[in-house]
Nucleic acid binder design. Structure first.
Lengths: 335, 335
DNA sequence: CGCTAAGATGAAACCGCTTACATTCACGCT
DNA sequence: AGCGTGAATGTAAGCGGTTTCATCTTAGCG
């Protein structure tokens, strides 16, 4: 592979000049630039990324850390981030941390070692303090889907509470009053916020909280199924089940069906996230739309704006969920 | 950030020695090693990846090129590859090429510029010749899901023909004789092979080919839906539809349902791929299992074996699809 | 036509590490 | 004690760029 030195020779200039045309910033006479470009083309020259990064201490890489590479949330997220960055000539370095605090810290360390210009983080386990303590020392970072009070500038987040509210309000508006709820893991920000929204809706409609219509799930299909069975067996009848994500809604649907309930004739179901396959289900799943692509794109824009100085980009930090009514929800009418 | 030089000073040795303990290969006296490690810990030293790569011309990075980062095939594939490599202390650099020959070539160029130690490629558009011409000049590479005759060593592939055969045979075995087929894009290797398997099964059972029971799709849900409508309108009755992937099967199911057909009572459906949500559907989708995780892991192993010399790994290059019978297929009995 | 200043180019010092080769060290033997 | 030897360590030359600063052009102007 040709080096900058050979290009310089071929073009009859010094390496400094070649370097200048590579970083097409400095003043190089048009004629000289031509010569150099010609030589570069001739030799099929490609700058050595490592030498560049070593010398310049810049990498044009943005580190992206997520819990998993697969899954209906992360995969589209990565896809959007990568695409947006690539369009801006930047490159994403992706790593997975598997919802483990230590691995998340490792991941951040890894990306830092790689001298990324910035970090886009979807943190699941690391406490907010981690970032509060490091606001200054860490590379520039955006947190996707977390809202840390005094760090708002770094946070892009979905209003999960509002989403939880919208989901439950949707079935309340349809006349349901006996509503079961399957939550995400207790203690997780998203899950708690969605639950809080649920409770707010109940309160607003004057429906008392009933512990027997609550099941603490873990966002898996299995939890949806088990939770439904448990609540069915608890003896308190319900006409709707609100799930904190679509995955659990699938489990709930399946279990209800095997127990002989019609959806939505006997029981309405609503999920959360609006993952791609939600509309593949039968009946098509009503759910809360999580503007995942918008948020992912915005994370990339945040970096382009704040790290690379693209002033044209406007940054939105707070995102609103949206109700998507499909076929698993129906009005409730007294039998 | 501390440099190797400072570590050397702190430990009272030369940088060469520090370098030796970093690459813990060479003979360093145990006591010296201790001193150096202590100094490294003391200074919280992290080697500069770029300086290392520049000097050594090795990166510990494996380039991975796929069509998309999202989707039920690519996301799990990336996830598995990344995980396997990480466990071996290697790192994946991931890039997407969006099914475009030029972008695929760009992607390979990109990964080559980054001086990856090897390439794992899921190529969609680039012709086999590209690789035949470059077998020598390219970085070590594995092709996922393509079988190029004289390049078998580089190819991991699924027996798509056999998969196509199994799918159609499954419904034939159930007594169906009027079988519609929705294929993938004509000209794509996978799609053509699956179709060939379908035809082989038909022939084996003495069922004549009927052009009206064939619809050339494109692997999208919409194609499944449109294809089904088209064939329904063609006037040739059918009792089963075999789809070249699960996505199209969803479309087919939906369309059949809106036209008033029961699944599987009136029409059986079988897909291909066994994507994660296939069992979320109702009825649960019968399909052909694509051993995606096995193949992805094997791609990582190929690299560990052939590039990093891990002799313990055995490499399997050919993978067999497997029939997964669930609830969308039922025996056909004359009305 | 000569002088000046701005603009274009070049020389050389780094960036932080690896590695071939030279040097030193420690130790067993005669 | 002196020597030979292999192992441990040090020296210094890159790896391929960027960037500061000095030097050389060039054009404009009196």
């Amino acid at each position: 592979m040709a080096t900058i030195y050979e290009v310089a020779q071929a073009a009859g200039v010094s390496l400094a000049t070649v370097s200048r045309v590579i970083n097409d910033s400095d003043k190089v006479r048009a004629k000289t630039r031509e010569k150099v470009l010609a030589a570069m083309a001739e030799l099929d020259y490609r700058p050595n990324v490592f030498a560049q990064s070593l010398a310049s201490n810049r990498t044009n890489c943005i580190g992206v850390l997520v819990s998993e590479l697969h899954g209906p949330i992360f995969a589209p997220m990565l896809s959007t981030i990568e695409k947006t960055l690539k369009e801006a000539g930047k490159f994403a370095i992706i790593t997975a941390a598997h919802c483990d605090a230590e691995k998340e810290a490792d991941g951040i360390r890894f990306l830092t070692e790689r001298k990324c210009d910035a970090l886009i983080l979807h943190i699941e386990a690391l406490p907010s303090d981690y970032f509060l303590e490091r606001e200054e020392s860490l590379l520039p970072f955006v947190l996707l889907n977390r809202l840390i009070p005094s760090l708002e500038h770094h946070c892009l987040s979905l209003d999960n509470e509002e989403g939880g509210y919208l989901a439950t309000k949707a079935v309340l508006d349809l006349g349901h009053r006996q509503i079961a709820y399957i939550s995400g893991p207790r203690g997780w920000g998203d899950a708690e916020a969605r639950l809080a929204g649920h409770r707010r809706a109940l309160k607003e409609f004057g429906v008392p909280w009933n512990q027997k219509l609550f099941y603490p799930g873990d966002f898996t299909e299995n939890a949806g199924s088990e939770g439904t069975a448990t609540m069915l067996d608890a003896g308190v009848p319900f006409t709707a089940v609100v799930c904190a994500n679509d995955e659990m809604a699938v489990g709930a649907m399946d279990r209800l069906r095997t127990r002989g309930f019609g959806i939505p004739d006997d029981v309405s179901i609503i999920g959360f996230d609006n993952v791609r396959w939600a509309r593949f289900l039968f009946p098509k799943l009503s759910t809360i739309h999580y503007p995942l692509e918008d948020m992912s794109r915005m994370a990339a824009h945040w970096v382009l704006r704040h790290v690379y100085g693209d002033e044209d980009l406007t940054i939105q930090r707070r995102f609103a969920p949206r109700l998507v009514l499909r076929d698993t929800t129906a009005p409730w009418t007294a039998p």
